[in-house]
């Protein structure tokens, strides 16, 4: 069952902005309010907007089957893998092994109130991105499975 033309046009216009906002929240999780979970939920809202506005056949045709499943699994694996890599650096599980190393995300942070540099934080931005794509995949799959478990459309 398609929603009306107005709803579909509104969803088409709103969706890119919601996606960009969600990715902004995920990537800037260590600088501004938000983080992986909140950003992933916002991105999942964009997917859900597509599901509400269009019919079942359109949704299943336009969202690839395995992308959401793979993104969920990859998010969890990246999370645990990043935490495990701290063991090779000689510190505890979940230790911040990239902090102050000078490489990716390794710039030492200035103490006190500062405008913020995205290249700080050690493993925290990586964990943010991991949780973000995991939450995105989980929420998307949850709703896709619920939508696929329904009886067929009446019309």
């Amino acid at each position: 069952m398609n929603m009306s033309n107005l709803v579909r046009s509104g969803a088409n216009i709103m969706m890119p902005f919601i996606l960009v906002y969600g990715f902004y929240i995920v990537v800037h999780g260590h600088l501004t309010p938000g983080g992986g979970f909140q950003g992933g939920a916002v991105i999942a809202t964009a997917v859900v907007l597509l599901m509400v506005a269009y019919s079942r056949a359109d949704v299943f045709a336009s969202i690839p089957k395995n992308v959401l499943k793979n993104s969920e699994t990859a998010g969890l694996l990246l999370f645990i893998g990043t935490a495990l890599l701290a063991l090779t650096a000689g510190i505890a599980f979940f230790g911040n092994w990239l902090l102050g190393a000078g490489s990716l995300f390794g710039t030492p942070v200035a103490f006190g109130i500062n405008p913020g540099d995205i290249n700080t934080g050690g493993i925290i931005p990586i964990l943010n991105i991991a949780v973000g794509i995991e939450v995105l995949g989980a929420m998307g799959i949850l709703l896709l499975v619920m939508l696929g478990g329904m009886k067929g459309d009446a019309e």
Partner: peptide
């Protein structure tokens, strides 16, 4: 607030 807006109002 962001979590509530995403989960509660959206999903």
């Amino acid at each position: 607030a962001i979590a509530e807006a995403g989960i509660g109002a959206g999903l």
